[in-house]
Design a binder for these strands. Structure first.
Lengths: 209, 209
DNA sequence: CCTCAACTAGACTCAAGAGTCCAACATAAC
DNA sequence: GTTATGTTGGACTCTTGAGTCTAGTTGAGG
């Protein structure tokens, strides 16, 4: 940020964070070795410790960086719902596909896997992603749905609940099908899943005539 | 099983498996120490190695034992759908509550957490639980739903898809609300979640008049 | 009572990983 | 050129945990 931080060599910080994520994602926190991260970042081990102090801080900052990325991508997907034309199913499907893509992103799976694994040891990280990512996204989606309800396109009493159910229908099937993020779901299958989810959602919340 | 296996002292095998699960669940596989497991089982470390050979085998057998338990409990829950009276919503809610209880069981969360964490290292375990637990349960639920569809209580084209969506509606909200299994969801909240899920499901698959 | 198998406590080996230290080196700013 | 700061590689300390070994104990079956 401030110019005097870039004295000496180039800033290796980002390289280290990238490598750290790659190794943490592949091996899990306890099995990830700092030497390996340093090697993968093309950096001396001492440099890692210069930047981050210790392994735990490195882990925390890695997760935080990923969360920011995830939040941005998810909000962008939800924002697509602003441009609903007259074809609500098509618009919902478009958003659904983008949300599913976010969810199926390898980085996203890795983040979720790390959180699952390390929640007992690092409860604050869960707080961070929950409050910093999941909740804002759910909020944004609920807001959009409320708007659509007000315009009479769907019949929704509780927008937060509707958002929760839409999300569940979209992402629930992904866990098993992707084998906990191990298997890559082909695009066509993702599309089918999304369309089914949207169909069920619309069928449940169709406006009463 | 065979009587000559019980020579010498009592069979400590079960004690070890219980302690192993408890420690694995609390600490995760890499952080779980065999000494700790032995201590918690009230057994010498050598005894653990006598029974299971090494830490990895102990882990595998622990997971396998838990999967059996999970399968039995889930199938029992689904079986309740056989006794549908004339009140379909009530019957579905009853089954839903039992399924949600299974899903929220601390052992169940621990199992899921371990699978998430260790899937890259032990892909075969995922296979085991997927093929041995998730699929049979989904099958059984789909069968039951097909039956109800045939009897005209609901309008379902694809029972497998309907089962997938019902499961998603029931369990999807649990992940965030329970903070990845960290927080215990009170019974009342579980009931509310289940009722909402069933309501949305029935609304989506209500029979066309 | 004897025997055999499993059990126990604890010392032990061996490997590996976190974090430190240091002497040599590079570079941007002055 | 000088200086301050960051980087490098590699040796180093220290801890910890998996798995082995041993000498002694216990209990059931014969």
């Amino acid at each position: 940020m401030s110019p005097q931080l870039n004295r000496g060599r180039i800033d290796k910080r980002k390289d280290i964070l990238d490598a750290a994520f790659s190794v943490f994602a592949r091996e899990g926190y306890p099995q990830a070795h700092v030497d390996q991260i340093a090697a993968e970042a093309g950096v001396a081990k001492a440099t890692v410790y210069n930047h981050f102090g210790d392994k735990e801080s490195l882990f925390r900052e890695t997760i935080a960086a990923l969360s920011e990325r995830a939040l941005a991508r998810n909000l962008a997907a939800v924002a697509l719902l602003a441009e609903t034309g007259d074809d609500l199913p098509a618009a919902l499907t478009k958003v659904g596909i983008h949300l599913v893509d976010c969810y199926c992103d390898p980085q996203s799976w890795a983040l979720r896997r790390l959180l699952y694994a390390e929640t007992p040891q690092f409860p604050d990280l869960l707080e961070l992603t929950q409050v910093g990512v999941a909740e804002p996204v759910a909020q944004a989606l609920a807001d959009r749905l409320a708007r659509l309800a007000l315009e009479g396109h769907i019949d929704i009493a509780d927008p937060a609940l509707a958002a929760e159910h839409l999300t569940a229908l979209l992402t629930g099937p992904l866990e098993a099908r992707s084998r906990f993020g191990t298997r890559r779901i082909p695009r066509l299958e993702r599309k089918t899943i999304t369309e089914s989810a949207v169909a069920t959602f619309l069928s449940a919340f169709a406006p009463r005539p």
